[in-house]
Amino acid sequence: MTGYHIPEHLTEEVQAFLFMNASRRVNRMFPVPPMLALGGPPGSGKTTGVKETCTRLDVHLDVLPSSILGGVYAGQSSITLRDAIKRASQSEAWMSAILIDDLDMSEARVDDALSNTVSSPLLNGTLMAYADNPFELKTHDDPTEKEAETLALERPPVIFITCNDLSKLYGPLRRNMRMVHVEYDPRGQDAVAIVQAMYPKTSPADIKKLVEAYPDASIAFFRNLGMAVAKTHARRFARSIKTRLFNPDFARLARDLEAAATGASFEELATAAQALSLTEDDKNHLKSVA
């Protein structure tokens, strides 16, 4: 919908991670973790930050939501992950990557909330085996089946992981030689810069005032303000049309809604923020670790 500012420290972390893994393709003895985990409260912009950074660096990125890491039979999550790794390794881009979104909400989680399934150790085992040697990929886990084949990967993808709470992941998986850890929870000037990129027509002074008024709000909270302003304009449009002559120009409407969101005034954003902060839905936008 709008531009997105990426804090410099995140860009540098991701760039260094990608460049070191590209170097490992040349020198395989260079012990670089192929996984980078981005931890932080829900709504802090972790997923968007990874996507935007990869886009700007021309990295081929496949997104693997944790919701599809599961299935009706044991080991299905491992199969899904291995298939994604194999596909990404075939990319012609200078570097390919997989983004596993909310891994701590998947079968890889090890606390009492989401654990004790047969698939949990299989998924964590697949991730650890890949972290230890991303140049080889086994075809399956079941020793009762035919002997597992090993696929050689000349261009193994890196794996980005987002988590609300990194401590919910399997301890051995989080070891430094398997995973790089980055905490991401934009505050202060970083948050101001991100929100300013969302609403470029609003003055920096007003954006700063807005962010400071809601110091515990997530980046998602501020992004939803533009959607609230656009919804107000959509309602006005709905009231203006005649039912019997319903033939709206949706292309023009889309442009108008985009302009309404990105060009929102401080007064419109402040009103939307006040309304959103009073709703039950706000619990999903204020920062808290799941």
Results as ranks from 00 to 15, higher is better:
212 E>A: 10
172 P>V: 02
123 L>A: 04
127 L>W: 02
126 T>H: 03
256 D>V: 13
201 K>H: 15
23 S>T: 02
110 V>K: 12
157 P>I: 10
35 M>I: 00
98 I>S: 04
145 E>A: 14
5 H>N: 06
250 F>T: 13
282 D>K: 14
243 T>E: 12
81 L>R: 00
205 A>I: 12
44 S>D: 15
51 K>T: 08
139 T>A: 01
230 A>Y: 09
242 K>L: 05
195 V>F: 02
198 M>E: 04
98 I>Q: 04
207 I>V: 05
215 P>G: 07
87 R>L: 01
261 A>H: 09
34 P>T: 13
35 M>R: 03
141 D>G: 07
76 Q>K: 14
39 G>N: 13
168 K>R: 12
80 T>D: 09
272 A>C: 03
177 M>D: 15
152 A>R: 14
129 A>T: 13
150 T>S: 10
158 V>S: 00
35 M>L: 11
229 V>Y: 10
134 P>Y: 01
123 L>W: 09
207 I>L: 00
217 A>V: 09
51 K>G: 05
39 G>E: 11
138 K>A: 12
226 G>W: 09
282 D>S: 14
81 L>Q: 03
205 A>P: 00
157 P>M: 02
153 L>M: 07
55 T>V: 13
250 F>Q: 10
241 I>Y: 02
114 L>A: 11
130 Y>M: 09
237 F>L: 13
39 G>W: 06
285 H>E: 05
168 K>Y: 00
55 T>S: 14
41 P>N: 04
200 P>V: 12
117 T>P: 06
211 V>Q: 08
42 P>W: 04
56 R>W: 01
7 P>G: 10
54 C>N: 02
277 S>V: 00
35 M>G: 00
120 S>N: 14
287 K>I: 00
10 L>W: 07
106 S>E: 07
236 R>Q: 15
251 A>S: 15
113 A>K: 15
159 I>D: 01
94 W>N: 14
